[in-house]
Write a protein that binds this DNA or RNA. Structure first.
Lengths: 362, 362
DNA sequence: CTGAAAGCGCTTACAG
DNA sequence: CTGAAAGCGCTTACAG
């Protein structure tokens, strides 16, 4: 075991094994030709020196770092930490490491993170992009030869694989469940930012059947909400759509309070992600509304606490770990040379019926 | 913007700026001497080529990667994801990136992770070691010149900085609170693995005032529990100590069930980490025990759901984000050349009194 | 089967 | 103020 100064290099093992560095490198990488005798000598030298190849030097020449860059909004959120766990698990199986960054939903941070990761020569990027319409930096990275895979937020503005869940279907199922219980005023809580009023109009417009892809997860979930209503022949009161304009628990609670204290308040509420679920539930607690008697509730994401509260919450579950696994798998396949058009993988969600939905009291 | 093939190198900018690569490198790194005129030319060349330095090549010569290796048990747990967020935040402020690994509490995984990170030439390591007594691989890494900082689990078996919380004090405070409410049979739920019975005897032995350092967080928390009892002159029934022998929610629920259905069951229960808290609470729900009437409860970690359930749970809060920040700060300080004996930073916890504690019914 | 040589993209003494 | 040269630790054609 070498002490602090210089760890042994391949030159040291070559010298000790009395071979050239070329030969040492060959047995190390187990390629090319070499006799059994030299193999042994080299292995012994490696052993006695405690030699370990320097990955950085290797990357320098192979132009591969076996490192994947991950850019998510916030690793401390249950959704992202679950996905990242899936990513690291799958990456590790294939000999890849993960370089982690957070954006806090700031496009500037995302740009910086992507730049940094590219500079560090990651082999590819897995990103939950902040803005599906603002992906120029990702396109640039791809033009520099980096593979990218999107998750949670597919974007048609870039030719990249994406893994997500069937957001439209998931929300449609949940809202239909509520409608079937007789609810006619169903509130929805979403972070959705609407930049231009026109987008909003378009979203609510007649073209409810457009394919998704150019819209983000929140918009897709709202679309599912709208389609369920249309299918049931129920008109949506725009006042029932609570938008926070950002991921923020406090904001979610605030909007929920407003929604639920309005004169003609909804008899049921659905949320579109874990932050909204948490904020909404907090507000419901404060308002001391009894579930499901005074209000029916469907949350998004099967957070562990949703079975701990009473009544247990009916929720839409996303396969978080699997999202990560699939994203990593896609990326690694591309790195392995797989070609072909971008794939959009839509993983199924699971609607978990528990105890927070009942017919409206009237 | 270069297209797929080779991104521009410093040679390209040198050529375009009509200087040598040495000079280009100097203005790029803004060191050494160069005239304003050449600075301009080089900057322009960089601009027009869209040149970005290759970090890997730079690391090769500087022997610095500006990358920190993080090894935690499981990034998807709220504790670790919170700490890692703190680490990445502080690291980023100082221009460092994070390479993330999980051990699932397996020493073998930890060894592998540390080896991998060292091979990748991280500048230093931040680790929540699986076994505070089995840190040979960390000592090896240090002897190779890598700085390491421990968190959550300080170890006296290695000369490294460590950041943790005052586990003994935290648990002592919580248990004292329970004792003051009149509880005499207080159960404790811990993952603590006891390899040899002797260790167990020693832990329960008379030397309750030994300093911590050679014991892990779980043992320290148990120690706090024991000291609180001793200070109050209350004897501890060993049957009240529920050990799961590992981090596992289901196991925690199982042990809790056993503890709470025993003939002379405890009137209060404390847990020693977030997994135990979750498992214990699940079991309490199943058993349909009313809090705090039939059972008083104090959880570990201020998980977001602990204020959502009714009654809200009294908990011991750890400053998770700050743990990460401090760990990163320590490491970066060492990388900056700070010397001196290892520092043990014990961050304070906060005891949040809510509604889950009351006098025993009796 | 093996070795000498070049090169990956940078930085950094060292001369001038 | 600037450039030629060496070198970081590897891998990989290319000869032999």
């Amino acid at each position: 075991m070498a002490s602090s100064p210089q760890p042994p290099t391949i030159h040291d093992v070559a010298r000790l094994a009395k071979v050239s560095t070329s030969t040492a490198s060959r047995v190390l990488g187990n390629y090319g030709r070499f006799s059994e005798a030299t193999r042994k000598r080299v292995m012994e030298a490696i052993e006695t020196l405690g030699y370990r190849p320097n990955s950085v030097a290797r990357s320098m020449v192979t132009r591969r770092t076996h490192t994947l860059g991950v850019v998510c909004a916030d690793i401390s959120s249950p959704f992202f930490s679950g996905v990242v766990r899936g990513i690291t698990d799958e990456a590790r199986r294939h000999g890849y490491s993960i370089l982690l960054t957070n954006t806090d939903e700031e496009v500037a941070s995302e740009r910086e993170a992507v730049g940094l990761l590219v500079d560090k020569q990651v082999d590819g990027l897995i990103v939950a992009t902040v803005d599906v319409a603002d992906v120029e930096h990702l396109r640039t990275a791809m033009s520099h030869g980096k593979q990218v895979v999107l998750f949670d937020r597919p974007s048609s503005a870039i030719e990249a694989d994406a893994v997500t869940v069937d957001d439209v279907g998931a929300m449609r199922e949940a809202v239909t469940h509520l409608l079937e219980h007789g609810h006619r005023r169903i509130g929805i809580l979403t972070e959705l930012r609407i930049e231009r009023e026109a987008d909003w109009a378009e979203l609510l417009g007649p073209d409810l059947d457009r394919p998704r892809g150019e819209i983000n997860a929140s918009a897709a979930r709202l679309l599912g909400y709208l389609r369920a209503h249309r299918d049931a022949g129920v008109e949506v009161d725009p006042a029932l759509v609570g938008r926070t304009g950002g991921y923020d628990v406090e904001g979610a609670a605030e909007v929920t309070r407003r929604l639920l204290t309005a004169p003609d308040r909804p008899t049921a509420l659905v949320t579109t992600d874990n932050m909204m679920t948490l904020g909404a539930y907090q507000a419901i607690r404060e308002l001391d509304l009894e579930l499901p008697g005074e209000l029916s509730f469907v949350g998004f994401d099967n957070l562990d606490w949703t079975t701990l509260v009473r009544p247990a919450l009916t929720v839409i579950e996303q396969p978080v770990h699997e999202i990560g696994v699939m994203a990593a798998r896609r990326l690694i396949a591309r790195l392995g040379g797989e070609s072909g058009p971008p794939e959009l993988i839509e993983l199924p969600t699971t609607f978990l019926i528990r105890e927070s939905v009942a017919p409206p009291r009237n």
